[in-house]
């Protein structure tokens, strides 16, 4: 299970690197205002918050297994 979460981490790192860099980022590189704020500004902060949220979720799972030592408990937790 730990291995699985680490693999998910790998996927998250790739996602974050994609979101924070051109060319994905450049899609939103416009001076238009969306909801009253610049589009790129809005995009970057939303993407940023998303990545932080996913990181928090995975880190919690991972540390539950790494540091509590009760791997089975965390297992069922992860599936449930």
């Amino acid at each position: 299970m730990t291995k699985k979460i680490i693999e998910r981490y790998g996927a998250l790192v790739i996602l974050a690197a994609l979101l924070f860099n051109p060319p994905i980022m450049s899609i939103f590189n416009s001076t238009d205002l969306i909801l009253g704020v610049p589009m790129l500004f809005l995009y970057l902060f939303v993407a940023w918050a998303l990545i932080i949220g996913l990181n928090a979720y995975l880190a919690k799972k991972l540390s539950a297994e790494q540091f509590s030592g009760s791997e089975r408990e965390a297992d069922s937790d992860a599936d449930g």
Binding site: N21, P22, S30, G36, F41
Partner: peptide, 30 residues
């Protein structure tokens, strides 16, 4: 935010700050 950015958007030299210039800045971004 809406008011602030709206007023800034009215000035071209400020509006350009909302985006980054693709020609030179992408490389710098990375």
């Amino acid at each position: 935010f809406g008011d602030l950015f709206m007023k800034a958007a009215a000035k071209p030299e400020l509006q350009k700050l909302f985006a980054i210039s693709p020609s030179s800045d992408y490389a710098q971004w990375v």
